[in-house]
Structures are given as structure tokens and as C-alpha cells.
């Protein structure tokens, strides 16, 4: 059951991601990204990270994607025309991509021999534990990231403000 669900959600995440690339209109790409986020939230649930799954849906599929869709609507973005690619990218791109993937595969299999693998599913990710960790062990990073997002809010307002 666990395996079937994993492959279902992993396949849907990759499928939505490929659809994101194929679609020519930005709004279709944004909607595909929501599909990717949803699949990943399900995978987080299966990994025992309930809090993160909910955060993924609220922050990513909710807030960030609304921002994206809003900007796409605002700019009235049109379909983009396919550009003429360079010759090198055309002929060497795909072989080099597969070479890169093969190298990553080799590295992963070197790092994780078959017998060293651990089963998932028996590890609870309680929200209270995450909160305790955030406000005790990671207090400084937490404060720093709060300042980062504050700066980002101010920066976004300044950037999008109409010049006088």
C-alpha cells in the first residue's frame, strides 16, 4: 500500500512538473505547480511530517501560488514564442543531461548500499517537537529568518511601489 501510494504521488509530482515545462501559458504552469505542491504534501504526510505537509499546502499552494497567479493576471502575460536554440544545446543537451543523471545515480548508489536502507513510516513528526526545536535549539536562525522575511516584505513593497 505504502509503495503504491509513493509511486502514485511521485509519478503525479513528476508529471505535473513536466506539464509545467510543456505548457506555453504562464497560468497553466502556475496551476501545474499547485499540483506538484499537492503531491509533495501527500508525500510529506507519508514521511510522517504532518506539520510540514500542512505548511506546504497553506504557504506554498495557498499564499505563494495566489501571489503568482495574481501577478500573471496583473501583467496579462501572453503565450511565449519558442526561441531558436543554439546548435550546441540542440545536439549536446540531451546526452549531457543523461550523463549528469547517470553520474548522480552512481553517487547515490555508492553512498547508500542496499543493506543500509531503513524503512520509513515509524517516525512521528509531532508539531510540538518542531515548535520546541524552533524556539529552543534554532532560536537564532528563527530570528534571523524572521528579519529576512521582514526585509523581503519591505523590499517587495518598495519594488512594486509606483514612482512619484
Amino acid at each position: 500500500m505504502y509503495q503504491a501510494l509513493f509511486f502514485l504521488f511521485a509519478a503525479s509530482a513528476v508529471g505535473f512538473a513536466i506539464n509545467l515545462l510543456i505548457q506555453r501559458h504562464p497560468i497553466h504552469s502556475a496551476l501545474s505547480l499547485i499540483g506538484v505542491m499537492g503531491s509533495l504534501a501527500s508525500l510529506y504526510l507519508m514521511l510522517g511530517a504532518e506539520f510540514l505537509a500542512v505548511v506546504q499546502v497553506i504557504v506554498y499552494a495557498g499564499a505563494v501560488m495566489v501571489l503568482f497567479v495574481f501577478v500573471i493576471m496583473l501583467l496579462n502575460a501572453d503565450k511565449e514564442e519558442p526561441s531558436d536554440r543554439s546548435k550546441m544545446a540542440k545536439y549536446l543537451g540531451l546526452p549531457l543531461l543523461f550523463l549528469l543523471l547517470a553520474m548522480i545515480t552512481v553517487v547515490i548508489y555508492r553512498q547508500f548500499p542496499e543493506d543500509a536502507m531503513v524503512q520509513f513510516g515509524d517516525f512521528p513528526g509531532q508539531t510540538a517537537a518542531i515548535g520546541r526545536l524552533l524556539f529552543r535549539d534554532f532560536l537564532l536562525p528563527f530570528e534571523v529568518i524572521s528579519i529576512l522575511i521582514l526585509i523581503a516584505i519591505i523590499g517587495a513593497i518598495v519594488l512594486a511601489k509606483k514612482e512619484p
Binding site: V55, L67, I145, L148
Partner: peptide, 14 residues
Amino acid sequence: IVAAAAEAAVGLGI
């Protein structure tokens, strides 16, 4: 996730 949200906000502002 927080860094990604900040990046999206600033990027879309740009």
C-alpha cells in the same frame, strides 16, 4: 519554505 516565500515576494516585485 520561508526563504522561498521571501524569494517569490521580492522576485514578483521585481
